[in-house]
Design a protein around this nucleic acid. Sequence first.
DNA 1: GTCTATAGTTGGATAGAC
DNA 2: GTCTATCCAACTATAGAC
Lengths: 219, 219
Amino acid sequence: MSSYDGRVTRRLPADQRRAQLLRAALEIAEHDGLGAVTVRGVAERAGVSLGVVHYCYTDKEELLRELIGAVNSEVHQAATAFVSVDFDSGAKGAEGLRQRLYEAIDLIWAVITASPDRQLLTYEIVSYSLRTYGLPEVGLARDQHESNEAIVRSVLERTAASAGMRWGMGLDEVVRVVLSIIEGIGLRWQVYRDDDEANELLHHAVDLVVRDALPVDGA
Amino acid sequence: MSSYDGRVTRRLPADQRRAQLLRAALEIAEHDGLGAVTVRGVAERAGVSLGVVHYCYTDKEELLRELIGAVNSEVHQAATAFVSVDFDSGAKGAEGLRQRLYEAIDLIWAVITASPDRQLLTYEIVSYSLRTYGLPEVGLARDQHESNEAIVRSVLERTAASAGMRWGMGLDEVVRVVLSIIEGIGLRWQVYRDDDEANELLHHAVDLVVRDALPVDGA
DNA sequence: GTCTATAGTTGGATAGAC
DNA sequence: GTCTATCCAACTATAGAC
C-alpha cells in the first residue's frame, strides 16, 4: 500500500501515522473546505485503509480538533517569526511612522495572501467552532485572534517607539481597531480578490491610524 | 400530516410548498449552520415527506441557491430601509459629523447584533460560495457586500453633507474602509461576543474616520 | 399535479484478523 | 500494536402511487 505521495507506508507506528493523517486532513481542508474533511477522504488521501484513521483518532471530532490546533499553531508560529522583523531604521515623526507601517502592512499582507485557501480555512474554523462548541468553548477560534493580535501589537508598539511617537487612543485600542480593519479587508479580498484594491485600502487605513499618533513627551 | 408549527398542510400547491420549505431551510441554516441543511432535515422540519422537497426543488443545490438568494434579499431589504433614516439635524462641522456617525453606527450595529446566528450564516455563505462555485461565480457572496456597501455609502454621504463636510480621501475609499472595519469588528464580535468592546471599537473607528473629513469649500 | 415508497450512495464507527 | 473487513446510519435522488 502506498500513500498519495508515492511512499510505501505499511505498518507505521501510530505517532507517524497520526502526523501523516493530520497532514492529509489539512490538505483536504485547505483545498476543499473544512466541511469536505471526511474520515474516508483522509484515509484515501493518505493511502491507508479506513479503519486506520479510527485507530489513530477515536473519532472524527478528535481529528478536526487536532487539525484546528495545527492551523492555530502555524498561525502562532508565523506571529512569533514576525516579532524579529526590524523596524528600527527610518525617519522620526509621523511621516517616519507612516513609512514603517506601510512596510509592516505589506509584509503582513504578503503572508495573508500567500495562501488564500488557508486564509479561507481560518474563517471556516471560526464558524465551525461557534456552531459546534458554542460560545462557552470557542477557545479554538480565539487562539487565532490572539496570535494575530500579538503581531499587530508588536508592530504598532515598535514602529511607534522607533519613530518617537505614541498612540493617542491607547495601544490596546489601536491594536484591536487595526486588527479588525485587516480582518475586514481580508474578508473583502476573499470575495473580490482584487489585490490592488486591498492594497489601497490598507494604505488608506494606515493613513487614518497614523493621524492618531502623537509625538512622545520631550521628543 | 402537520408541519412543525401545527398547521395541517396536506397537498399544498408547489409555490406555497417551496416557500414553506425555504423557510424551514432558513431556520435550520440559521440555527445550526449552512452545513447542517439536509434535504431530509428540511422535509422533517416542514412536516412533509422526503420526496416532497425533491418535487419542489430539483436537487439540494437549487434549494441552497434559493436559500442564499433569500438571505441576500433580506440583507438588501434592510439596506434600502436604512436609506430613509434621517441624519439631517444636528450641529455643523467635524463634531456634528461625529455625532451623526455615532448615531448611524449604533443603528447599523443594532441590526447586526439583533441576530448573531444570521450574521454568522452570512459568513458561511461566503465560504460556501467560494468553495462551491469558485471565484468565477461568487456573485452570491458579492450581493451581500454590495448591499452593505450601499448602506455605508448612503450614511457617509448624507452625514457628511448635512454636517457641511466632505471626505478627504474620496467617498468610494472611505466607504470601503469603513465597511471593512465594520465587517472586521463583526467577525471579532462573533468570536468574543463582547458588546461593550465592539461598541468601543466602533466609536474609535468613527473618531479615526472623522479626522479625514474637511469642511466643504465656502462653508 | 402532488406525494409516498424505495433505491443507491456516502459517511462514521467497530469487531476481529494478523 | 497495527490494520482489514464489515456494519449501520444518514444522506441524495428517483420511480411510481394516488
